[in-house]
């Protein structure tokens, strides 16, 4: 496999080009489908294959930046991006992220930061995942009852969550409308506060925030799932662009590796975005719930490594997250092929 090795000038190592393309492909598919950056997959994957860790996060952010531009453009063409909402999300998130970072620094001074962040991360991953599965099961039950009573519909129509309905009743001016999301009126402050909180959590946990933003857009703002995916990607695009520049300033990006990963991500992003045409609304929510629960299990392994001081758990965490990402990518790809075949028939 040495023939596929390429010299990475900044990191100063030789690295297999096929591994970079494959990682990019998996993250591209998941990113295009779920509207997330996917840094939590790339960093451990690069780590396992021996990529220089000081460069891993920055390189990852650089490739996510390029990939999210591709996926956002594609989603925008499909009418899945609410630009106005995306703009509010960026403003609210930036302030929230900064506040979250400062809170982490405050905790750091008291020596509590490490495991606390990881525990909060685990609670959110498992909590959101379980809630989304609970929501999915509820909808499926209603659909079954409707089918029994003769009111048969092939796929459940996405309803606005009760939480979002309640939040829309808050009439604090200015009131805005978000036509692309089908929202006639909502208080600007509600939207701003939601993004402030999600941004705070992103800054606190040190993650891109796609996995928090997507459920927030669905359950709190009340966006249709595909619009939530597209709009979340727009936000990821800005955040990763800023992250790419700032990590490059710290000397932590490897441009050649990021460019190669983008080749795989470009193909993956197309597949992920197209798959949202065939796996719609509640299907995306269910797969997202499964994915974040799997990510939560991986974080649990990492936490176990800290508690039991066994490096084995760290390796298990990385392999687990890679295996989960690979399986999910394969599933999305197969579903896309089946959908396209049915379209042709």
């Amino acid at each position: 496999m040495d023939m596929f090795n390429i010299h990475l000038p900044i990191a100063g190592i030789d690295f297999n080009i096929l591994i970079l393309i494959t990682i990019g492909f998996c993250v591209g598919t998941l990113g295009g489908f779920f509207g997330v950056g996917g840094a939590w997959i790339v960093t451990p994957a690069l780590n396992i294959f021996g990529f220089n860790m000081p460069f891993a996060i920055g390189t990852d952010l650089a490739h996510i930046f390029g990939k999210s531009i591709i996926a956002t453009k594609k989603h925008s063409k499909m009418g899945n991006v609410d630009w106005r909402l995306g703009l509010f999300s960026i403003i609210g998130s930036i302030i929230g992220i900064e506040a979250g970072k400062r809170f982490v620094l405050m905790l750091e001074a008291s020596g509590n930061v490490g495991p606390v962040v990881r525990w909060v991360y685990m609670i959110f991953l498992f909590g959101l995942g379980i809630y989304m599965i609970y929501d999915y099961v509820g909808v499926m039950k209603i659909q079954k009852e409707q089918q029994k009573s003769g009111d048969i519909s092939k796929a459940p129509v996405e309803a606005v969550s009760p939480m979002a309905m309640k939040l829309r009743h808050i009439k604090l001016p200015p009131i805005i409308s978000l036509p692309a999301s089908g929202i006639v009126h909502i208080s600007f402050w509600v939207v701003f506060f939601i993004f402030l909180i999600t941004g705070f959590l992103s800054g606190f946990m040190g993650v891109g925030g796609g996995f928090i933003l997507l459920p927030a857009l669905i359950y709190l703002v009340g966006c249709p799932t595909t619009v939530a995916v597209g709009t979340s990607l727009l936000s990821v695009c800005f955040m990763s662009g800023y992250g790419c520049f700032s990590y490059s300033m710290s000397g932590r990006t490897e441009l050649v590796a990021a460019m190669i990963m983008l080749i795989g991500a470009a193909i993956g992003a197309q597949i992920g975005v197209l798959a949202t045409k065939y796996i719609r609304g509640y299907g995306i929510r269910l797969l997202f719930a499964i994915m974040i629960i799997l990510a939560g299990i991986s974080v649990t392994f990492k936490q176990a490594e800290g508690i039991f001081k066994l490096d084995m758990f760290n390796t298990m965490a990385a392999y687990f997250v890679m295996g989960s990402a690979g399986s999910m990518t394969l599933f999305i790809f197969v579903k896309l092929l089946i959908g396209m075949k049915q379209d042709k028939d």
């Binding site: 930046f65 531009i69 591709i70 453009k73 790419c244 520049f245 990021a258």
Partner: peptide
């Protein structure tokens, strides 16, 4: 020139992203 390097990295990724998006379409 670290600032220039950062700009080159960021702009290259943005340019490649847009190029791929437009060309695949």
């Amino acid at each position: 020139h670290r600032i220039l390097y950062s700009l080159v990295v960021t702009l290259t990724m943005a340019f490649l992203g847009m190029l791929v998006a437009v060309s695949t379409d």
